[in-house]
Design a protein around this nucleic acid. Structure first.
Length: 306
DNA sequence: ATCCGGGGGA
DNA sequence: TCCCCAGGAT
């Protein structure tokens, strides 16, 4: 039941309404067989995967996710682990505050939710480290609920296929949610399937640099393609520098502590960055964030390690 | 609006 | 080099 001319009405451009079944069918056939999509993965496995995947490519998450789920199969298992062990197991995934927050969330889930990850979006949002995206991703992917899941990929797919734009502009959570909500079918099962399909499409086909339109299940249902694939014309995207920033220094300091058996003297940290002022600032911020602790004799280590 | 890791592809 | 990557908290 498709509109024969989905993108035009009376010769004028119109917004495309994506066909859920077309997307779901494509996802069923072509979606990657990622481990956190397995039938025996529960809400905990999904929450761990979604947290690790924040700003982090799939290939780097895969081995760490497997290790975590084997080692800490339930929230209470992670909650019982020392912070330092959690940070070591996080390795170099980046943004280690995610690990601290996930550790905290595991404690809340264990003590207040019967060791079961909640399925309700508002309850999920109350957990540390769980925001607009992750709450809905867990509800949709772990529990099959209808929830608009909007990540950078979905924003791009919708901007192109629905609005005919080259890419999405700056994020606007309320508008983005309403935008995607309007695309989802009414029933939970198909809505969650469409959410998964939209993300997969953006990751594997409708990519930033080289979209594979010839492999796209939407073919004639894409407003961007119909409009001749116009270039992105929105506001310039922010580019965050990394080299020379406090983030780099924090990473170097933490890497020393991950690689040591226990706390290290100040000199071991001083060796990784020559500029003292920035080094001190980075170390202070790590202490504030609870990623590093100082022992009574003045050495530094991961939290919970004497 | 900024900060928060780290790696890999073009 | 530049830019991107399943974002969240402040």
């Amino acid at each position: 039941m498709r509109n024969p001319e989905p993108n035009t009405v009376g010769g004028e451009q119109r917004e495309a309404a994506l066909d859920p079944d077309e997307l779901i069918e494509w996802f069923t056939a072509e979606g990657r067989d990622l481990p956190w999509r397995g039938p025996d993965v529960d809400g905990w496995g999904v929450l761990v995967s979604e947290t690790m995947l924040q700003q982090t490519p799939v290939n780097r998450v895969l081995p760490i996710w497997r290790e975590w789920l084997e080692r800490w199969p339930r929230p209470s298992d992670l909650a019982a682990a020392p912070q330092g062990e959690v940070l070591r197991a996080w390795g170099k995934l980046g943004y280690p505050r995610r690990a601290v927050r996930l550790h905290e969330a595991a404690g809340v889930i264990a003590s207040e939710h019967g060791d079961r990850v909640p399925s309700d979006v508002d309850t999920l949002l109350a957990l540390p480290g769980v925001g607009t995206y992750t709450a809905r991703a867990v509800a949709a992917f772990a529990y099959g609920e209808r929830a608009p899941v909007v990540d950078t990929n979905v924003r791009r797919v919708v901007a192109r296929a629905v609005h005919g734009a080259g890419d999405a502009g700056n994020p606007s959570p309320k508008r983005d949610l309403a935008d995607v909500d309007a695309l989802l079918p009414a029933d939970d099962h198909r809505a969650s399937g469409m959410s998964a399909a939209l993300m997969e499409l953006g990751q594997t086909v409708c990519t930033v640099r080289s979209p594979a339109c010839e492999s796209c299940p939407l073919h004639h249902g894409c407003a961007w393609r119909a409009a001749g694939k116009p270039a992105y014309d929105g506001p310039p995207k922010k580019v965050q520098r990394f080299a020379g920033t406090d983030r780099q220094v924090r990473g170097l300091l933490l890497d020393v502590l991950r690689g040591s058996e226990g706390p290290v003297p100040r000199a071991s940290l001083d060796a990784v960055w020559s500029e003292a002022a920035q080094r001190d600032r980075a170390l202070d911020s790590l202490l504030v964030d609870g990623l590093v602790e100082q022992t009574e004799d003045g050495r530094f280590g991961l939290p919970g390690e004497q």
